[in-house]
């Protein structure tokens, strides 16, 4: 017998939660209990009194499992609202990355040219290196990093995805 790999798809989940100790561990635990990975996770408080945080989670899994995870997230006492952005019509998602590239001569010029195409900003430079700041979708950032790898990628830091539903209604 062999174990069949299940079809899995990417979902972006947006949660608002009470800003309290242990909430992040509870949420992460729901995923790890099922052996599913969180691809990216962002947390920051979003209200003036610091009482509410938005957590954005990117995960991959079979649709049924994602549904179950959403239901269980919603059941956690400190969770206010869970939205599956992927399933709720058009939404905007953005990620920020800092990309360090080293090189001299023609490589340097090519790096700047590509950065211009991707609308990446130079936020640090030395004679032999740049740090670019780039925002966009995960795909766009992946592409930029892929190109920079051919030029002289040193390392990358990424924030993970944040997202909001398009239009005037809140998530």
């Amino acid at each position: 017998m062999h174990i069949q790999e299940e079809y899995s798809e990417r979902h972006v989940l947006s949660l608002t939660v009470s800003n309290e100790a242990g909430i992040l561990a509870r949420i992460a635990g729901l995923f790890t209990a099922r052996g599913y990975n969180i691809d990216s996770l962002t947390v920051a408080d979003i209200t003036p009194d610091h009482a509410i945080s938005r957590i954005t989670i990117v995960t991959s899994g079979p649709p049924k499992v994602i549904d179950q995870i959403i239901a269980q997230l919603d059941r956690l006492v400190p969770v206010h609202k869970v939205t599956d952005l992927t399933d709720n019509g058009p939404f905007v998602e953005r990620e920020l990355a800092l990309v360090k590239v080293a090189g001299v001569g023609e490589d340097r010029i090519e790096a700047l040219r590509l950065a211009d195409v991707f609308r990446a900003k130079v936020v640090d430079t030395t004679i032999e290196s740049f740090i670019f700041e780039i925002t966009g979708t995960t795909d766009k950032i992946d592409n930029f990093i892929g190109l920079m790898r051919q030029i002289g990628l040193v390392e990358v830091g990424r924030t993970g995805v944040v997202g909001l539903i398009r239009g005037k209604e809140p998530n």
Binding site: I3, E6, G29, T32, A33, R34, G35, V65, Q68
Partner: peptide, 30 residues
């Protein structure tokens, strides 16, 4: 594996429960 997370008979989140009381733990899926 296909029953994990469904409250199956004799299911407990062993990895979650033992995370803080073990040096390390693993769920082996293959």
């Amino acid at each position: 594996t296909q029953l994990i997370g469904t409250d199956a008979f004799q299911e407990a989140d062993t990895i979650g429960i033992t995370r803080h009381c073990s040096k390390h733990n693993y769920l082996v899926k293959s």
